[in-house]
Design a protein around this nucleic acid. Structure first.
Lengths: 227, 227
DNA sequence: AATTATTTTTAGGCCAATCTAAAAATATAT
DNA sequence: ATATATTTTTAGATTGGCCTAAAAATAATT
């Protein structure tokens, strides 16, 4: 992965790549200039500029007015950024005792540190984690993501114990709300009853019960409890 | 220290500050434009540009043609950079098992990560180290350096067991040379004989003997062995 | 003190990344 | 299909950081 694309990019270029990577995760079609501008909190004009530059560096395929898709090179670079970001998040939570809602911004800086050796040693130091503190998969050094069977909490049957394995929302507010509900990765949940009239759900959270809104539940990934 | 100077600087600005800090460590007089240019591997003209900018930000006192001295603000910022650099070096060596000759470049990047909370937690995680892997003191959060009685190896009496506490040279070549001589921080040394005709010294290194050049010895800091 | 050498600053330009405003292309709606 | 709205690109300006070359200030030498 590293040797595949050892060119140094500016932090800005890396951030554009990551934004495009993120935007093309859902559907695999070309990403629009405007979407990137929104994601990067900048103007469409700046995006067009940057797309030209990244296109010249063969990091993406760019057709005027038609948006962009990452090239293989661009994809590998982005994946490596995601790898670094998530490994640093694990470090911050597991070793420095940060909460899961505090780590994103710092990892956003740390992911730009350029040293393959550092990343690999960090990975080893953390015992090769497969998921970050939010349950997102950490790509391996060769760019492979660990897949996992998971579903959204609202789509699970009643009376079926499940384990929390991830979240779909990463905002500080949402994460801290989950903290208050005592919902964290590895927590056992069980849907007890749904109240369709107000979109709320009664769940067992560990050994107590809780009412949660289905808006919250829709952002929690779970897997069937194998125990 | 942090609250005293919470302005964000560019990486370049931070590097200039660090360079000036380093150059004013030996003697306390004003640092010349040329000296900074040499240290930063850039032109005198660029330095003049930057000095104006840093001066406007009140980080240093700049008098045309007369060089610069850091202001209190500038001094604190530099000290904090040194603190971060050295803490990260400890992390890299102690936790990620890097050798002492490998860590400078990576720490050079990590020192620019901006998060007081991160630094303080890192400090705690490393058990508040007072010295980095080369024996250089790590300033505390409020900017104080731990002082230590030490002398240069060549200036120690014969037959006096001493402990290695630091190095004056940080080049990769020098550090690896010391590795080959089995000389590392904490190692016990004892000068057995000096050969003035070729400037070499016979020393006891731990439980064996070694010939080392006085050029090497002049770059080793030791303290009298208290045991 | 006058000349020479060195250091430092100024002047002018370049590049990456950004912006706003306007023009061009594409998409939507009647 | 024509008009309107939206998206995207171009044009031109700005800023930080860098450069070279030339001018100005200071230091060293005789």
């Amino acid at each position: 992965m590293y040797n595949a694309c050892r060119m140094k990019l500016s932090i800005t270029e890396e951030n554009y790549l990551k934004a495009i990577f993120k935007l093309s995760e859902r559907d695999n079609k070309a990403v629009s200039t405007n979407a990137i501008a929104r994601q990067m909190q900048t103007s469409a004009a700046s995006v067009t500029d940057m797309l030209k530059r990244l296109s010249e560096k063969k990091l993406l395929k760019y057709t005027k007015y038609k948006g962009v898709t990452l090239s293989e090179k661009g994809g590998k670079l982005s994946t490596n950024l995601v790898r670094k970001h998530r490994l640093w998040e694990v470090f911050l939570v597991d070793k420095l005792n940060f909460r899961w809602d505090e780590v994103h911004e710092i990892a956003e800086q740390l992911e730009h540190i350029d040293s393959p050796d550092l990343v690999n040693r960090l990975d080893a130091f953390l015992n090769h984690p497969k998921f970050d503190p939010h349950g997102d998969p950490i790509p391996s050094a060769d760019g492979k993501f660990t897949l996992r069977s998971q579903q959204i909490l609202t789509e699970v049957d009643h009376k079926l114990p499940v384990l929390v394995v991830g979240v779909r929302e990463h905002s500080v507010a949402f994460l801290r709300h989950l903290d208050e509900l005592d919902i964290h990765l590895g927590q056992q949940l069980e849907i007890l009853e749904r109240y369709d009239y107000d979109d709320s759900i009664r769940v067992r959270v560990g050994d107590h019960q809780q009412m949660i809104s289905s808006k919250v539940a829709r952002n929690i990934f779970v897997k069937i409890n194998p125990s």
